[in-house]
Amino acid sequence: MSKLTLKTEGDTHVVVTRRFAAPPEAVYRAHTDPKLVQKWLLGPEGWTMPVCINELQAGGKIRYEWRNGKGDGFHLTGEFLELKPYRRIVHVERMHLPDPTPDNHIETTFEPDGTGTLMTMRMTLPDAQTRAAMLATGMERGMEASYARLENMILDWRLSEASH
């Protein structure tokens, strides 16, 4: 059973939740300490994050750069709006692909959940079109890695549709 939920809310929100078997303090640190962030926020297999800057204060800058070792790369910039240690992070971010995407406003909360943590990430995009484009872009990165898998799945449902 998957521990992750991803859903859209209203016209402009995307809400992601995930449970972790560690206390909020640890999950918060893993989201803010660059040395820890570089270990997991990597996306598809083969990508690394050689640059990870988090200025941990309101107004502080965020900069993440990803590379795949084959000459491809992209980066993200942002600013922290609010940091409440171990409980809440509010920041804005944009991807540079290479043109910057519209700002994504993200509130991340870490709530104690038994001996673990429930993380809730609530993203707010400027409008429905931007949200749609963001989902499409996020999907594209996954797509590169698994286009063949998608092809098989589409073939499956095409065939099942044809057989009805």
Partner: peptide, 15 residues
Amino acid sequence: DQWLRMLRKALEKNY
């Protein structure tokens, strides 16, 4: 739906 599942998968890999 397929795209949303793939996006979830990418996020799951990170988490």
